[in-house]
Design a protein around this nucleic acid. Structure first.
Length: 856
RNA sequence: GCGGGCGUGGUGGAACGGUAGACACAAGCGACUUAAAAUCGCUAGGGCAUCGCCCGUGCGGGUUCGAGUCCCGCCGCCCGCACCA
């Protein structure tokens, strides 16, 4: 009997699929198409076990859809531009392109051992000039459609390295390499007009039925549509031209509780005051030392600076409010100025208490029950949902008792009538800044000419290729100091001009790769008939960390591409169904050095003993931290290459699908991998023993019934992304097969079906078994088995009997037994008789086929 | 800080509002073996103390004949916060 040897069978079947061209995507109008796409990887150089999980899930879907008669597109590529390549250059002197392509080569080799059903003929990397040249062509199209513009925006500036820093390169307000305090600096940068699509992007979410609700909720909140009041405070003796402060508020009903006006340190008024007041200049400078991220601003201690200026309250000219510059107000959102109402905003309340400003409630809970302390009396800010009815004690519009929503609407109406301000709809979504002051990205294809201004490159001159001869030994962007690349002639007037040296955000690259896969070698960004046939992506799979930015940008990009004729109208929502998978985690093994600092150990440096986990080398006890995100610095990583070498790809694939639900994290354990390998060997053994079964056996029907139930359950599991339940079902069926005394024919059928049902998950093993049992052709190309409905129905059901909601007994009855008959039988059971003690039940609930509850 | 999610035995988890713990891992016991490995079988939430009952799905309330599941309030962890990808 042949032993199961993954290392022998896996390459064999991979070659067989290759030779048969099984996974080549073929545009075939006679078949329904299915496009399954996993978010493409960044070529870091090594496959991560998380990749294995992500791509195995997509592979299960792709192989299943192939078996159900679809023309499947399942492509792979590389999200290849970005910071790490430049960092590698600085550290090792290797060119970012060389580093990236050698990583790709390495990862592709690792990928090939997994037996994924990918069509590699469509592969590309976003750093291929062929790809980014098409991206540049689209950028020019977007410019023509007015979807791109330039404006000033702030960046993190490292004054020592003389370079722009990404948010993640700022640590505690300091540059990660130089350690110098980071400054905010304003630069002219390129933007996509995504905010023009705010309403559309919001409203279209309602039609994405196969997206997780949580992702849609996050996007809705991110777009942040709000209805509010815009009005201006007039200033008493303010600087000329700046004596009105425009504010936007979503809670105009709290206007009578206003206690101060706050402006951003980047507000024009703040900048004006800075010039004449060194204290203000110092305060603003301090604010600007913080990074640019909203997170940092919100987490920082709330600080303000009293400008000494006063504004008049719009309803009462005698009522004066102080004007503060405050570090938590963003110039980018609203008007860069707010009014603070401490009674109804916790942040404003803390600010007011810190600077001794008045607190005035405008509304209180409807009944103002005991236990409620008004904020002016030391309580917390009162911030009920807008839908809640409250009692207005300092309202000015609408009823005394009304919901917050009604209060807001009444306040807007009142202010419009009295001319104080007007109601406006605003969105939180900001335009997409795509400029990066870096080398390793797609060059923005424009030229700056002194006489013509900003001129797009001629399309026939695309791609604007990155120059190869660059170094990273000096700070800043190498494109900036590359004279032969930078200094060009204006495409319009032919006079000397300068190329734009900013490159594009890598989110641009990943915002249309899904469309490019439909025609990856075309000399236009897309090809109409291919996009028409293959789009949309039927199933998109990726991490939840992309819930907002990548997915929102892609949705915008598809719309912009449609406007420029690069995608059909039906593809403006490019992803029909979305699935967000969880991570693969691993225990951390930690000891402490003599100073008490943590020391981390690789999984192969420890062993489990009766007295706990210890270091193999020294026997020192190890602290085990479970379910931690894998990270190189914590050394809790497993290398998929080593796993595949040790156990085979099928074991790795089966393991990452089993146990945890796909959307949740799964913890990699050595014992789990070991057990998986054993299970697959068992399946192989069982299949090879089928031939030894007697011609005639017992329980053929029972085995086949179990088989059909398994077909049904596994299919349902795959279709609903319940791979872990499919796996559990397959375990159970394997156990049934092992115990069965059925005859050879039934066992053979059962084993072949088992192989088929396992084939999306363990494709190599399945091919081997299929072949061994005389299956025709490749199992990868065989039609998916169908469950016979007649084999699924049971004649009898077991009904649990509850008494007052607690299970006390059960009865087995014919499936379709009449409800009255069931009641009769239930009342006759010992348990019910005992509970009733001669009396009558208060209530008798019969849920047909499920449960009975007797209330006594 | 703000937005979103998750929380069930020693462990991973299963469970259309309907028998909580399927399926597996680890563990224990047994069979086979000179022995080990491999394989096969059995046990297993906690407690009272056996054939019955009580308690149990992060914590505290609520809705319901019935709640892991729905609602309210906490706690803990994870993801995102616009220049990481």
């Amino acid at each position: 009997m042949a032993r199961y040897s993954a290392s022998e069978i896996e390459p064999k079947w991979q070659r067989a699929w290759d030779e048969a061209g099984t996974f080549k995507a073929v545009h075939d109008p006679s078949k329904p198409k299915y496009y399954v796409l996993e978010m493409f990887p960044y070529p870091s150089g090594n496959l991560h076990i998380g990749h294995v999980r992500n791509y195995t899930m997509g592979d299960v879907v792709a192989r299943y859809k192939l078996a159900t008669g679809h023309a499947v597109l399942h492509p792979m590529g590389w999200d290849a531009f970005g910071l790490p390549a430049e960092n590698a250059s600085m550290e090792r002197g290797i060119h970012p392109g060389d580093w990236t392509y050698s990583n790709i080569e390495n990862m592709k080799k690792q990928f090939s051992t997994l037996g994924l059903s990918l069509d590699w003929s469509r592969e590309f990397a976003t750093c291929d000039p062929e790809y980014y040249g098409q991206q540049q062509a689209m950028f020019i199209d977007f410019m023509e459609k007015g979807l791109v513009y330039r404006k000033n925006a702030v960046v993190n500036w490292d004054p020592v390295d003389m370079t722009v820093l990404a948010n993640e390169q700022v640590e505690d307000g300091k540059g990660w390499r130089s350690g110098a305090p980071v400054e905010r600096r304003e630069l002219t940068q390129w933007f996509f007009r995504i905010s023009d699509y705010s309403e559309e992007l919001l409203e279209a979410l309602d039609r994405l039925d196969n997206w997780p609700e949580k992702v849609k909720t996050m996007q809705r909140n991110w777009i942040g549509k709000s209805r509010g009041l815009q009005f201006a405070f007039s200033m008493i003796d303010g600087p000329e031209g700046l004596d009105r402060i425009e504010v936007y508020t979503t809670r105009p009903d709290t206007l009578m509780g206003a206690s101060f006006v706050g402006i951003s340190p980047d507000h024009p008024l703040a900048k004006e005051l800075e010039a004449g007041n060194p204290d203000i200049a110092a305060f603003n400078a301090e604010c600007r030392r913080m990074g640019t991220s909203e997170e940092e601003l919100e987490k920082a201690e709330k600080k303000g600076f009293d400008t000494g200026l006063k504004v008049r309250h719009p309803f009462d000219t005698a009522w004066e409010l102080p004007v503060y510059i405050a570090n938590f107000i963003l110039m980018d959102y609203g008007t860069g100025a707010i009014f603070g109402c401490p009674a109804h905003d916790q942040r404003d309340l803390e600010f007011a208490r810190k600077y001794d400003l008045p607190v005035t409630s405008t509304y209180v809970p409807e009944g103002e029950e005991e236990g409620f302390t008004r904020p002016e009396d030391g309580g917390d800010a009162y911030v009920p949902p807008k839908s809640e009815t409250v009692r207005y004690v300092k309202g000015f519009a609408g009823d005394e008792l009304q919901t917050g929503e009604e209060g807001v609407n009444a306040a807007i109406a009142f202010c419009e009538k009295t001319g104080v301000g007007h109601g406006v709809t605003k969105f939180r979504l900001r335009d997409w800044g795509l400029s990066r002051q870096r080398y390793w990205g797609c060059p923005i294809p424009v030229v700056h000419c002194e006489s013509c201004g900003v001129v797009p490159e001629k399309k026939e001159n695309l791609p604007v290729e990155l120059p190869k001869d660059v170094t990273f030994d000096k700070p800043g962007n190498p494109l900036d100091r590359h004279p032969t690349w930078r200094d060009v002639l204006c495409p319009k007037c032919g006079q000397p001009a300068k190329r734009e040296t900013d490159t594009m955000d890598t989110f641009v690259d990943s915002s249309w790769y899904y469309a490019r896969f439909t025609a990856p070698r075309a000399e236009t960004p897309t090809v109409a008939e291919e996009a028409e046939y293959w789009m949309n992506v039927d199933q998109y799979i990726g991490g939840i960390e992309h819930a907002i930015l990548h997915l929102l940008y892609s949705r915008f990009f598809a719309r912009a591409m449609h406007e420029c004729g690069h995608l059909p109208a039906s593809a403006v929502e490019p992803f029909d169904a979305l699935f967000t998978q969880g991570m693969v985690t691993h225990e951390i093994y930690q000891t402490r050095d003599d100073k008490g600092r943590p020391v981390y150990h690789f999984p192969n440096e420890v062993e489990k003993t009766d007295s706990g986990v210890v270091l193999t080398a020294t026997g020192e006890p190890v602290e085990v931290i479970p379910s931690a995100k894998m990270s190189k610095s914590k050394r809790n990583v497993v290398d998929p290459v080593a796993i595949v070498e040790q156990y085979g790809a099928d074991t790795a694939r089966w393991f990452v699908l089993s146990d945890s639900p796909p959307e949740r994290d799964v913890e990699w354990t050595a014992s789990g991998a070991e057990a998986t390998a054993k299970h697959l060997a068992r399946v192989h053994r069982l299949a090879s023993e089928v031939a030894d079964a007697p011609e005639k056996g017992e329980g053929d029907e029972a085995l086949l019934r179990e088989m059909h139930k398994t077909i049904h359950d596994v299919t349902m599991g795959i279709e609903s992304f319940g791979f872990n339940t499919s796996v559990a079902r397959l375990y159970a069926f394997t156990n049934a097969l092992a115990k069965s005394k059925a005859g050879r024919a039934a066992k053979t059928e059962a084993a072949k079906t088992l192989a088929q049902l396992m084939s999306p998950m363990t494709p190599h093993l399945s091919e081997e078994i299929w072949h061994m049992l005389g299956g025709e052709g490749l199992v990868a190309e065989a039609a998916w088995p169908k469950a016979d409905p007649a084999m699924l129905v049971e004649d009898e059901v077991t009904l649990p009997i509850q008494i007052n909601g607690k299970r006390r007994d059960e009865i087995t009855v014919p499936k379709d037994l009449d409800k009255a008959e069931v009641e009769k039988l239930v009342l006759a059971t010992d348990a019910v008789q005992k509970a009733l003690a001669g009396g009558q039940p208060k209530k008798l609930i019969v849920v047909p086929g499920r449960i009975v509850n007797v209330v006594v």
